[in-house]
Design a protein around this nucleic acid. Structure first.
Lengths: 248, 248
DNA sequence: TGGAAACCTTGATGCAGATCAATTTGAAGG
DNA sequence: CCTTCAAATTGATCTGCATCAAGGTTTCCA
């Protein structure tokens, strides 16, 4: 299971986002080397579980490519997505034994992982890694709380617009350049997964997407390919105050 | 405004929860002394703002007594509570300039504060403080995500039961002893504040509380004084899987 | 090339919770 | 003790989303 250790990349590494987002913002190169020693890659098929809620979780890591979701489920089967993991997002709970949620790959997924024990030891030795993790956890907390407003107070149409707006902005930040003009992207989620994120049913999601399309807020080609001709308009529909912060 | 600095207490201090919950789990006494030097107390009247969303926030701290809430508001006035601060809870975002939410005292409130700058410097010098903060932030993240399930997927009755169950458990952990038997506490929130937490209207909150009372799940004396004769029953009503974790 | 399975759309109907509207309760202050 | 005002309750009605149901599309594999 835990194989592919000692994967070596150059220190200018660009294939592993954890270097930039999670850990190595200000790393010295010998720290990088130590990280390389405990680093390995894992691949998951679309639909498979990365980890089950409650299971022992012996790694931390970040998404290299693909999409994963964090979900909670009640005994009777009602489920709520509590997080969306896009490339460069971090997963893991340093200092915690078990996983708190199901982590599911919704597309084929590659993750860059570090075994938890040595990662935690490295955290002890290099304080700025702990700071970077605190930073990231605060970001996630902000995103979760922003999402509480969406779940608690927004209408179905606003919820859909909020989700599209998040995905559009995330996508735009991954493929930079082309600052203005229409945004184009593919929805990485099924209607059902969107419903689980938004606290709706898949039928309502479908209807509201059709409505936004009918009203010219978005254009759809097939079921997944979206064009947003006017991002400002979409954000108005989401009920966001003007340019708002990054979610998720 | 920022006065009462250099408040001095003995190192066996029991009046300031930050010592135990936030910072000083494993402090050496000279670190405690340094903390004493930047520590001060602030009092707020019921209904007043501790901080406004977006304002510069130059302190961190923890609740000594009273209740505060974290809320977000949309332009049209819809509001969603995103956190509930009970005694011993920590507020503050080390490394962040501004406040992300309104923090409002819902009862008279006393906070134990540390000026942010020196607090952050102390964090640099004493790694276990950073670890403790990461720990606490992960707890808050869990609570926020647990609450996303409540907001997105639970019925009004389940939402009320969930909130009562959180408050009951928090209250029980503050006043320990009396392990079993009925739990008794006072609701620290108005019906409207509960509605803002639960994504409901105050009328629905009132109706569902009446219903839980009618069905014998809780007993009410006046509008605020609650007795829970059977905690297990309340948690069933909340839809929680058996004994579940601590929220908030 | 055809058939199955997964995914999506659209329609009809029902209901939980919102909204609108009176009262009632209870605490604070004169 | 009476007045006042915020907080809470309760009722009547409305509506947005869920639910139930019936196709339609796309993908993939035989």
């Amino acid at each position: 299971m835990l194989n592919e250790k000692n994967f070596v990349v150059s220190h200018e590494c660009s294939d592993c986002p954890i270097r930039h987002r999670a850990v190595c913002a200000r790393c010295e190169s010998d720290e990088l080397t130590r990280l390389e020693e405990i680093k390995y890659y894992r691949k998951f098929e679309a639909g498979s579980h990365v980890i089950w809620s409650g299971d022992r979780m012996d790694f931390v890591g970040s998404v290299v490519s693909g999409i994963a979701t964090l979900t909670q489920t009640m005994e009777d089967g009602r489920t709520q997505m509590v997080g969306l993991l896009l490339p460069s997002d971090f997963v893991g709970r340093p200092g915690r034994e078990g996983a708190a949620y199901d982590v599911v790959a919704t597309t084929d997924l590659t993750m860059c992982c570090f075994r938890k024990k040595p990662f935690e030891e490295m955290m002890q030795r290099t304080p700025h890694i702990a700071h970077r993790l605190l930073e990231m956890t605060l970001d996630e907390l902000d995103a979760a709380r922003e999402w509480m407003l969406v779940l608690g107070r927004k209408t179905a149409r606003e919820k859909i617009a909020s989700l599209l707006s998040i995905i559009a902005r995330r996508d735009a930040s991954i493929h930079p350049g082309k600052v203005d003009g229409p945004l184009v992207f593919d929805l990485p989620l099924t209607r059902e997964a969107m419903a689980d994120y938004l606290g709706l049913t898949l039928e309502t999601v479908s209807r509201q997407i059709s409505a936004l399309k009918r009203d010219g807020v978005i254009e759809l080609e097939g079921k997944r390919h979206v064009t947003v001709p006017n991002m400002g308009r979409l954000m108005e529909e989401a009920g966001d105050d003007s340019d708002g912060g990054m979610l998720v």
